[in-house]
Amino acid sequence: MSRGEQMKQGGSMVLNHEAAQAISAEKVASLPATPAQYRCPICGKISVNHEDLKFHYANEHPDSVVPIVVKLNVNGKDCEVLIEPHWTLQRTLQFQLGLTGAKQMCDHGACGSCTVIIDGRPVLSCITLAAECEGKRIETVEGIAADPKWKPLIDAYCRWDAMQCGYCTPGFLVTAKALLDRNPNPTEEECREALAGNICICGTYPRHSQAILEATMKMAEGGE
């Protein structure tokens, strides 16, 4: 038995890629297909279904806009979510689906921390209405992390410390994945241009290009 194996058997716990992938996969697998409950956002009353909630609104909150059920496809899973019509996708992901990788940050579409991929394009989920996303394919960082294909990218991000406080990092990583989807062999300049909408106050900018370029090489080699 190698020393490393001994150490692991002894209980050393490391959140490595395999663990992160497993946790992310579990998050994706447990995305609810239907709303967990039909809770009135005004008074908190629980209805048995959407029709019942509509009836409750008609009686109790006749001047208010009734919550809607939106069908989203998130990380390959179909999910019906109960939201108020003005809810952003970021808020929906966090509050209804438990996905916290798309971060609440600037609320103005100015920083990229909330980036998700919709139908192949990086999109700022803090200024995208969830109701507009029906029928579209939404990818979040959790879906990317759950896919072993992206191990080289995530490994490279971690090897190069492409994060300091880490709050903005998932947004960068999602943007990087979108770049690699359309251009598997970007130049450093192309990396920088792709990431121009992501703000990192910790100043990790050069690390992202380094990580993406290293991941590109690894992925081209087909290895991990």
Partner: peptide, 20 residues
Amino acid sequence: NLPGRLSYALATGIAKFGID
């Protein structure tokens, strides 16, 4: 190039900050 002990949590969105 030694990954931070919580870098994978940060990169993949597993890390939960207060408002998450």
